[in-house]
């Protein structure tokens, strides 16, 4: 395998894992969103993430083998993707979710844009499709950041807390694309009246399989049924 092909494969797996774990997190919102319209939108974004994950994982092997038979150390997603969508495990907070989606979808948009322009034909096809979806995800998150940042005192406080909590995980997320990512995200924060946090702590390790405590819980739930019936077809 050429060096380029090898590099692409590693990158595709990382992006596929980001999308898969993000889909699993977003699906937690089903039947729990602030409005019915938002329930539809969040499920739609989860479906897009899942669709992208399936295409990306298929380039590296069997999608179900990869999703259901790897332990947490085998996953290559960034830490941001696996974090609970709220301050603590089990929480589901809309402000955290939109901040998380803003950060994630801006990075995905850039990664998919690069894939679409790359030399690998199969990867370029996946990238081209996913770019359109990420553009919509980023817009959706942006619209909500404006409303939460510029809405009530409470919403402003909550979304700023979310931003402060999630910001450090943006470093690993944006390795190699940091400046372009900041150019997408900083104007949204400014227009939302939010303070861009300082760059200090930079947690990482996800791309090497060293995850947070949260991922193994997510996987335990996601993989439980599949693993209980080895070899079964569904």
């Amino acid at each position: 395998m050429s060096e380029l092909a090898e590099r692409t494969e590693v990158e595709l797996l990382a992006l596929g894992d980001d999308a898969l774990i993000a889909a699993q997190r977003l699906a937690e919102w089903v039947s729990r969103a602030p409005t019915l319209e938002e329930d539809v939108a969040l499920a739609n974004i989860a479906l897009d993430q899942l669709g992208a994950a399936r295409m990306l994982l298929a380039t590296a092997g069997d999608e179900d083998e990869l999703a259901y038979r790897r332990d947490d150390q085998g996953f290559r997603n960034c830490l941001l993707a696996e974090l609970p969508l709220g301050p603590a495990r089990g929480d589901l907070d809309f402000g955290w979710t939109m901040t998380w989606l803003l950060m994630l979808s801006a990075a995905q948009l850039l990664r998919y844009t690069d894939l679409a322009a790359g030399a690998d034909e199969q990867a370029a096809g996946i990238g081209a499709k996913a770019v359109k979806e990420s553009t919509y995800h980023l817009d959706h998150a942006t619209q909500w950041m404006l409303r939460l940042g510029g809405g009530t005192e409470q919403s402003h406080r909550r979304v700023q807390e979310a931003l402060d909590g999630l910001w450090p995980y943006g470093h690993e997320l944006t390795e190699g694309i940091r400046d372009r990512w900041l150019a997408l995200v900083e104007p949204v924060l400014a227009e939302s009246g939010l303070t861009r946090p300082a760059d200090r702590w930079r947690p990482d390790g996800g791309r090497a399989g060293r995850h947070t405590e949260h991922l193994s819980f997510l996987l335990a739930e996601m993989q439980s049924l599949h693993r209980a019936h080895p070899g079964a077809q569904w």
Binding site: A27, G51, A53, R54, E221, L225, H226, W234
Partner: peptide, 10 residues
Amino acid sequence: SRAPSLRRKA
């Protein structure tokens, strides 16, 4: 969250 294949999950 526990769908046994990615196709069934979708």
